[in-house]
């Protein structure tokens, strides 16, 4: 579980996050949604420790990050898995080497044991048989799956995903969404996903935080998002033609 209390972050005097309060729950897919420039990525980078907030507290399993010793911070980074928007696979390494990388860096196990774990994880993301391929030789969807495999290979406690299905066709995007949700439940981890894809929200939004201009304006889950009267949320949700037409059809029926 990750708790965020009164989080503020500014760049060159301009406040990007304005007092965010939210709890990212364990064994749930927690979504941060909002328009571009709303502060989603900045919030994620604060949670990852890449940005230092000006004010506020981030607690990992109840303990504030500021109270972590250097060794604890190091341990925490080993418990974090991250799926980047573009995959961020090391392009000089094969699929297998990419997934093996965190194990090589942080475990003292023998190579054989590590390779077995890599095989197991690649099988979990349906990529067995692609071990020796280079990232440039596989599709965008497969790259995302390799990225997920690399993120979970070290059995993390927290999984962060930055727009994991951007640039993918709707079918592959759904596969990736479902895979992340399954892994979240299976590994009992706290998953935080940044997205502005309403399909993902409907598919896996077990807990949702909606940001607008650096302010948390709404929180809830996928079943509540269509019932809210909050103008900012409805603007965002119905900005898609598809959802707008569904709403019009529903209103006609009524």
């Amino acid at each position: 579980m990750i708790e965020v209390e009164n989080l503020h972050k500014a760049f060159d005097g301009e406040e990007v996050l304005k007092g965010i309060d939210f709890t990212f729950e364990k064994s749930k897919t927690n979504l941060i949604i909002g328009q571009s420039g709303s502060g989603k990525s900045v919030l994620l980078k604060c949670l990852l420790g890449l940005f230092t907030p000006e004010k506020g507290v981030i607690k990992y399993d109840g303990k504030p990050y500021t109270e972590f010793t250097e060794d604890e911070k190091k341990d925490l980074s080993k418990q974090i898995g991250m799926v980047f928007q573009g995959g961020a696979l090391f392009d000089s390494m094969t699929v297998e080497e990419n997934v093996l990388f965190p194990l090589r860096m942080f475990t003292k196990k023998k190579k054989k044991e590590n390779l077995e774990r890599v095989k197991e994880v690649l099988k979990r993301v349906n990529l067995d048989g692609s071990e020796k391929k280079m990232p440039s030789e596989i599709s965008g969807g497969m790259q995302k799956r390799v990225s997920i495999a690399r993120a979970i290979v070290n059995r993390p406690k927290y999984l962060f995903c930055d727009e994991p299905n951007s640039g993918l066709d709707p079918k592959t995007a759904t596969v990736i969404d479902n895979l992340i949700q399954e892994i979240t439940h299976e590994y009992d981890i706290t998953t935080i996903i940044i997205t502005h894809d309403m399909n993902s929200v409907l598919e896996i939004g077990e807990k949702i935080a909606f940001l607008k201009d650096g302010v948390l304006v709404w929180k809830g889950d996928k079943s509540q998002i269509f019932q809210t009267d909050d103008e900012a949320v409805t603007d965002f949700v119905y900005s898609s033609n598809l959802f707008q037409k569904v709403r019009e059809a529903q209103q006609k029926e009524l």
Partner: peptide, 15 residues
């Protein structure tokens, strides 16, 4: 190239 494709961020996140 590693910088623009977030590979450096990936290293940093891994500690």
């Amino acid at each position: 190239s590693m910088n623009v494709t977030e590979q450096i961020d990936a290293l940093e996140v891994m500690g």
